[in-house]
Simulated assay, not measured.
Amino acid sequence: MTTTDIFVLAVGGLVSGIMAGLLGIGGGVLLVPLLVSLGNKPIEATATSSLAIVITSVSGSIQNWRMGYFNLKKVLYLGIPALITAQLGVLIAINIPSYVLLALFGVLLLINIYLVQLRKQLLIQENPDKKPFNPTICSIATGGAGGLLAGLFGVGGGVIMVPLQMLLLGEHIKVAIQTSLGVIISTAVSSSVTQAYAGNVLFIQGIILGCGGLLGAQISTRVLPKLPDNVVSIVFRSFLGILSIYIFYRAWLNYQGLAS
């Protein structure tokens, strides 16, 4: 690993931490493409991203706990099914071709563009009197979806858990973000342990990314909320679109390499 690689990883972690703190999502949607662009295998990229997310999510949840915003009961309701499905996601990721994993991640990036907009709409339409359909079933579905994404793609899972909590459980946006961050600890740790056992985690890279994410989250919580939400949202969605094109391109190259 060169000095340039270390610098790129640190900056990448910083940017992912900023976006994660601003939008309440995990930084994996940025970290995985970054690691792939540095020449790492797709499975190594997703595994290492999980390790970096452990660092940032633990730090954020500790801060929430100190401020009295950590609801253990809600975290457990979502975290237990997420632990199970995270292992399922890892199992799938390890056993599918790398070009398929990349292509699926590209699809996830495109879906994230819609989910960011959906969360904004849910925030506008937020109804404190809304009742969930069935709290137990909805909690299992929400946590399970987040865990599956975490294990499969090395993302936190918050990008799907936040809107699902608002849509299915009637949670307020801040509560959804805080709960999601707590659940992400369990999914990221679960994924990282399994991936590390399989020899897929790049520990030095993951620690550099995680430390950069710590700093980025501090910046976003103190400075970036002052920026217009629509500007940040447009920039982020545009970035996801560009990343998805790049990931599909890498998937195609990977497929061509296997075919030849």
Rank of each mutant, 00 (worst) to 15 (best):
L34M: 14
T4F: 05
L108T: 04
V107A: 10
T56R: 01
G27Y: 02
T2H: 14
M1V: 13
I80G: 02
I55G: 03
A103N: 09
V54P: 05
K41C: 06
T4R: 04
G68V: 13
G60W: 00
L31D: 09
G12P: 07
I111N: 07
V107Y: 02
T85Y: 01
V36R: 06
M19I: 15
N112M: 14
S57I: 00
A103P: 08
A86K: 02
L76S: 05
Y77H: 03
Q87F: 10
L108D: 00
V75Q: 01
L38Y: 05
I96N: 12
S37N: 00
A10H: 06
N112C: 12
G26V: 05
M67I: 06
G24F: 06
G24Y: 06
L102I: 09
I94L: 10
T56V: 14
P97V: 13
S57A: 15
I92E: 08
T56C: 02
V32C: 07
A103E: 08
G79V: 07
I6W: 06
I25L: 15
N40L: 14
V11F: 12
A86Y: 04
I111W: 04
G27F: 01
N40E: 07
L83C: 08
V8F: 14
G13Q: 04
S59W: 10
L108Q: 04
L76D: 01
V32K: 02
L38T: 07
Y69H: 12
A52Y: 05
L76W: 00
G13N: 05
I43F: 09
G79H: 05
L22E: 10
L51P: 02
P33V: 11
G79S: 14
L109P: 00
S49F: 02
V8M: 14
V11C: 15
V11A: 14
W65F: 07
G21P: 04
I25P: 03
M1R: 14
I92R: 05
G60M: 03
V107E: 03
